[in-house]
């Protein structure tokens, strides 16, 4: 949303629906966000708000019965949907977009050596756009890529990188596995890395090590990152900008400091007030997150919102510019901004 730099990853009005036995479930409803080059953008929300679906939609990994019903995703101005020819999509996803999964215990195959698993990504995608090894004979290529893996493992501060290649996943701790997965995501020298709650399964001291590492690597390598999490504390420390989601809709997006310190959407305000660090009387938001099968009309937060106005049920609120560089999707905030 920054006007100065064009967005590297541009998600516009993205809606995703899933066909279920009970009808069509609307998982994402008009999601908007822009990732500026070299920045870390957090996507935060409660479970079921569509954070993980958003990542899958960008990666083209939506499950069989779900589809993007409207909207677009563009990388460097080139649309990712529409180019559904497998070859084009393949040249972008995995190669220009890396992915760090949530659970370091499930993401590595237990029966293959770590070195081979890391090699596989480069075998398919090459090691970046200036990779000269792709044309070389098999043995040379393998040697070159193995050297690159060792260099990457050193960059993610894994102890004994040369020996690590021949080990199996169970020989590493949770934090070390997460480092391996970060190395795998960076192997093909992507422009963008999508991270799906990569520190949720880790202890706080390990989480801190990984957060520092991610920040250092994205800065050194000029990689942009979209970081999905439910933890506002992690967003506050790691991210430059943040998007808050509720029940598949974008409610607020902007610089981290602004959104965290002066949230303007009622949902962001109420959710932050539930955090034990800020909570005055330990009360949750009344009501429950609506089912995606039967979402409320208009703004999906309206049944729980204490500040509803008649407009709220009329249609999906647009994400419009508000104070201090942020964008808010709330009819009431819009009405107050333009008296």
């Amino acid at each position: 949303m920054t006007a100065s730099a064009p967005a590297l990853l541009d998600v516009r009005n993205l809606s995703v629906a899933v066909d279920t036995d009970e009808g069509v479930a609307s998982i994402l409803d008009g999601v908007n966000f822009q990732l500026a080059p070299g920045s870390i953008h957090g996507v935060v929300g409660e479970s079921g708000c569509g954070k993980s679906t958003l990542i899958k939609a960008i990666l083209g990994l939506l499950p069989a019965r779900s589809r993007a019903t409207e909207g677009s995703v563009a990388l460097n101005g080139k649309p990712l949907f529409g180019l559904e020819q497998a070859s084009t999509a393949h040249s972008v996803r995995g190669r220009q977009i890396g992915f760090i999964p949530q659970d370091p215990f499930l993401a590595l195959n237990p029966v293959f050596r770590v070195g081979d698993q890391l090699l596989e990504a480069m075998w398919w995608h090459g090691a970046g756009s200036d990779d000269t090894n792709r044309e070389k004979p098999r043995a040379q290529r393998r040697r070159a890529y193995s050297e690159r893996i060792v260099e990457l493992l050193r960059a993610v501060q894994l102890p004994d990188p040369e020996l690590a290649l021949a080990r199996y996943p169970h020989q590493f701790s949770g934090g070390q596995r997460q480092r391996l997965l970060i190395a795998a995501a960076l192997a093909c020298a992507p422009q963008v890395v999508l991270a799906d709650e990569p520190t949720t399964a880790l202890d706080v001291t390990t989480q801190l090590q990984i957060l520092k590492l991610l920040r250092q690597l994205t800065r050194e390598r000029g990689v942009s990152m979209m970081f999905v999490t439910h933890d506002f504390g992690v967003v506050a420390q790691l991210c430059d900008t943040v998007t808050v989601m509720y029940a598949g809709q974008t409610v607020e997006t902007g610089p981290v400091a602004t959104v965290m310190e002066q949230p303007s959407h009622p949902y962001t305000r109420m959710l932050l007030a539930c955090h034990p660090e800020r909570s005055v009387e330990l009360k949750g938001i009344p009501g429950a997150v609506p089912s995606p099968l039967r979402p409320p009309a208009g703004c999906r937060f309206n049944p729980r919102c204490p500040e509803v106005i008649p407009d709220c049920e009329s249609g999906r609120p647009k994400l419009l510019p508000a104070s201090a560089g942020r964008h808010v999707a709330c009819f009431r905030c819009h009405a107050e901004a333009v008296p």
Partner: peptide, 14 residues
């Protein structure tokens, strides 16, 4: 991690 942004660099890690 606390809710006050921008402290990551000052947080000593083990």
């Amino acid at each position: 991690p606390s809710l006050t942004p921008g402290q990551l660099d000052g947080m000593p890690s083990l």
